[in-house]
Amino acid sequence: MSSDNILELQGLKKHFKVHSTFGRGKTVVKAVDGIDLVVGRGETVGLVGESGCGKTTVGRTVMKIYEPTDGKIIFDGVDITDLKRRDMKAYRSKMQMIFQDPFSSLNPRHTVGTIIEAAYIIHKTEPIGGRTKAIQNLLERVGLNPEHINRFPHEFSGGQRQRIGIARALALTPKLIVADEPVSALDVSIQAQVVNLLDDLQKELGLSYLFVAHDLSVVQHISDRVVVMYLGKVMEIATTTELFANPRHPYTKALLSAVPIPDPIIERQRERIILTGDLPSPANPPAGCVFSTRCWKVQDRCVSEAPIPVQISPNHTLACHFPEPAGKL
């Protein structure tokens, strides 16, 4: 087992059973359907894809908010897949989560101090210098006024609330942070502040991030490597520079070409690949390659046989029968 990695997912699956109101039918939604990925120590791995691709489910399954259906989760060299609640506690303090919505993820009836202190109470830890001091240090670290320890969440703006969420996640000095769309609910001018804060904290504390987001520009900025997901499967994994300069999977290419660039001249000259149709339902994914129904390069083989992710170069893994040629975008 390589100890270079803080997190390894091996063939991770999470299926949900969904009951229908009328009729007896039970359908299985394959939210995550066998993915492999690793997060190295001190590394930021971006997990991107459109809604319904399973990226959020991956994050939550890693945190064991969901029990995995199949596969392995190896955290810090230990297989935590089948650990029960009680045994998970020791690991849970080492992996923390930041949520998307800074408005609903903080209890409105608790002060900032109480919210952060809960982490210490649950894990029965007493930081050096006492809890209050520790909380105030944390607040200061994330750019909030330590004197605001007794304020309630509604007294803060969205960006500040997200900072509280980050402070809460940092309280137990975690090694891995799963950030689920941490900036997408924030205003444009505030996003950069929070992205920079996450950058700084990583450098300072040696954190590893699993950064789940749909915004490719933000992911591109913050990640060392990027995993592109579609309908519960991994399409492409590569280092950020490689993926953005040299996308090989047609889906990645389409995704990148759909992201608007704030530059009118570039926009006017850009050739867009406009995908037709919508994301198929994860309850009834297409046979063969899951992207085949929207792919402009689809051939018979794509419909009959699902491509397996193959490492095409040391920093590039790809699941496609007919990849785009290598070269510049």
Binding site: V188, S189, Q191, A192, Q193, V195, N196, D199, L216, S217, V218, Q220, H221, T240, T241, F244, A245, L256, V259, I261, P262, D263, I266
Partner: peptide
């Protein structure tokens, strides 16, 4: 302050 997909490299964002 906004990151761009066409500008590679991990420069620090210039936040407001």
């Amino acid at each position: 302050s906004i990151p761009r997909v066409d500008k590679l490299g991990s420069h620090r964002l210039k936040a407001i």
